[in-house]
Write a protein that binds this DNA or RNA. Structure first.
Lengths: 244, 244
DNA sequence: CGGATCTTTGAGAGTGATCAATCACAGTGG
DNA sequence: CCACTGTGATTGATCACTCTCAAAGATCCG
């Protein structure tokens, strides 16, 4: 099982040293969200680790020794085919949890999108906590269930939506989740590249770019810099996303 | 939130009365699989219910009062857009579990593909069992985690694979899961229609049909009747599916 | 200022969708 | 018994959305 596909850089030596989540990720105090999990039952076994942008956190097929909670930054979870095609299953932002697998190995790779700080927990400890602390197990179950629902929603996007609908849905999702509260309402600061967006939405970079340009020309959004998107007409965006 | 999309029949009055999973689903004694769950902790609260082919079990948005285990037959889990586009997130076969949601409502619709017999469990009971019986919670967590991984694998298929690869992957999956052990190795008895397959794979009926014809003309498969597919060359099928 | 990476733009090509028959089969009623 | 009807599957022609290929522009950093 060749995890390291030829063309996909997972540990770029020339990446910035660490860049602790730059302006892209304002240092807001990680407002508690409903889908966030309380790890106090296993807090003692936590260790803090850091990764810089585009560094691999683990590969698909690696032994599942640890799972992680994002303290700051953004992580992508992805699968890669032998010929290099990549699909990003999810972006995990501050407060998010990933890396849990019932099996002995990880089923997908995890990579840092920005510089990230993570809390690292031994899977064995998590499993033990589940087996002894029903309340903890219940919360973890709720978290994984939420992730399953998100994945199913994404199936609809990848299977049945057009490029315009995908982009609009993506932007609206970001507005809702608001990784790192932007100062102004309607302003999105994207932590990820166009390539990442394309691999998340099942499109090519070129299609992402031209679709954004199309939205821009209709004054639905403005793109002052590539990583900043101002939503000028949220209603039109919702129409585009095929949502009531 | 209009669940009942105009063109999609969810409760056809002219459907066969019950047809308890015909030849399509041989009455094999549901060999225990690893991803099956033991519901003895809440067995007392179970009730057996039946649905005939194409009958809705619940709609997206319905109150999440029950979850289900498949005793016999096949169920589809799907989402439908306002304009009628449908995406099937998963097929659930004998022994499978569905309908669990941490939230108060179901996040997707469930419909019988064939005539099905289900064991029905109150969500509240399941939740209570999770909160009091750590072993049960642990098993349920493992089950949902497996479903999440399956969904993520499907994301790769919908986002990055060609029509041929999708069909090949689908057939190989069926061979592995082998809903109802077919007598002979390599013979698949499809419980679902071409339309269902198309909505599962993010394609149209026509593309599914012509892709199957293409595989047939290359002697990779044989299709004696529309619902029977004999895999003649599994190796070629694996090549098609882009798998090592 | 030069080099690398990322983004944008545009022209052309191709896969899968759309549109339109035809076929196959089961159930129904004459 | 057999035309009639309705549903689902198949096939083919055409279309279009997105990909591919190519190049230029933008930004960052040395």
């Amino acid at each position: 099982m060749s995890n390291v596909a030829a063309s996909v850089p997972t540990f770029r030596p020339n990446a910035t040293k660490f860049t602790p989540a730059p302006a892209r990720m304002p240092a807001a105090p990680a407002a508690k969200r409903g889908d966030e999990i309380d790890f106090t039952p296993i807090a003692a076994s936590a260790r803090e680790v850091k990764f810089h942008a585009n560094q691999a956190i683990y590969f698909e097929g690696d032994d599942a020794e640890h799972c992680f909670k994002v303290i700051s930054g953004t992580v992508r979870l992805c699968k890669i085919t032998d010929d290099g095609r990549r699909q990003i299953a999810a972006f995990v932002g501050t407060g998010g949890f990933f890396g849990w697998t019932g099996a002995t190995v990880h089923k997908y790779a995890a990579e840092a999108v920005t510089g990230v700080v993570l809390a690292k927990y031994p899977c064995a400890r998590v499993d033990a906590a589940v087996a002894t602390n029903p309340q903890f197990g219940r919360r973890l179950l709720g978290l994984i269930t939420t992730q399953l629902h998100a994945a199913q929603e994404h199936l609809l996007l990848l299977g049945r939506k057009t490029a315009g609908e995908r982009l609009a849905t993506f932007l609206l999702d970001l507005i809702c989740r608001r990784h790192g509260e932007a100062a102004q309402k309607g302003r999105l600061v994207l932590p990820m590249s166009r390539t990442d967006i394309a691999d998340y939405l099942g499109l090519t970079v070129e299609t992402v770019s031209s679709t954004l340009s199309s939205l821009r020309s209709q004054h639905v959004i403005a793109v002052p810099t590539p990583e900043i998107i101002d939503v000028r007409n949220a209603a039109a965006l919702r129409d585009y996303a095929m949502m009531a």
